[in-house]
C-alpha cells in the first residue's frame, strides 16, 4: 500500500471503529422475551414467515417443472419408438427440410 491517497482512505475507514457506540437493548426487551417464552411454553407456534412461504412455493414450482419435463421426455420417447418407419422418415425429412416443397 504505497499510494498515500489509498492509505488515507484505509486509515479513515478503520478509524470508524473507534466511533462505534454501544447500543442499549430495547426497554421492552424482557417483556418481549417473556411473551415469547410463554408462547413457546404454551405451544403456540409463530406463523411461518412470508419468506418461508415463498421458498415453499419456489420448491413446489421447481418440482412441477421437473415433473413436466420428465413427462414430456418420456412421452416423446414412447411416441418415437411406437411410430412406423414411414412416419419416422417423414418426421426426419420435415425436421431437416428434405421435402420437395419450396424447391
Amino acid at each position: 500500500m504505497n499510494n498515500p491517497a489509498v492509505e488515507k482512505e484505509v486509515e479513515g475507514t478503520l478509524g470508524v471503529l473507534e466511533k462505534v457506540q454501544r447500543a442499549p437493548a430495547s426497554p421492552f426487551f424482557y417483556t418481549r422475551l417473556k411473551a415469547r417464552l410463554q408462547a413457546e411454553h404454551a405451544g403456540v407456534r409463530t406463523p411461518p414467515r412470508r419468506l418461508n412461504i415463498r421458498l415453499s412455493l419456489a420448491t413446489l414450482a421447481g418440482t412441477l417443472l421437473l415433473l413436466i419435463n420428465i413427462y414430456s421426455l418420456w412421452h416423446s420417447t414412447v411416441q418415437w419408438h411406437t411410430a412406423s418407419k414411414e412416419t419416422k422418415l417423414s418426421t426426419f425429412a420435415d425436421v431437416y427440410a428434405l421435402t420437395d416443397d419450396g424447391y
Partner: peptide, 27 residues
C-alpha cells in the same frame, strides 16, 4: 441484555435481527 444485544449487533445487520437473536440467546 445490552452486552448480548451488542454482540449480536456486531454480526447481524439490523437491530430487529439482533434483538431476535438476543432473545434466542436468553431462551
Amino acid at each position: 441484555q445490552d452486552r448480548v444485544y451488542n454482540t449480536c449487533l456486531g454480526f447481524l445487520p439490523t437491530r430487529q435481527e439482533a434483538e431476535d437473536a438476543a432473545q434466542e440467546v436468553f431462551i
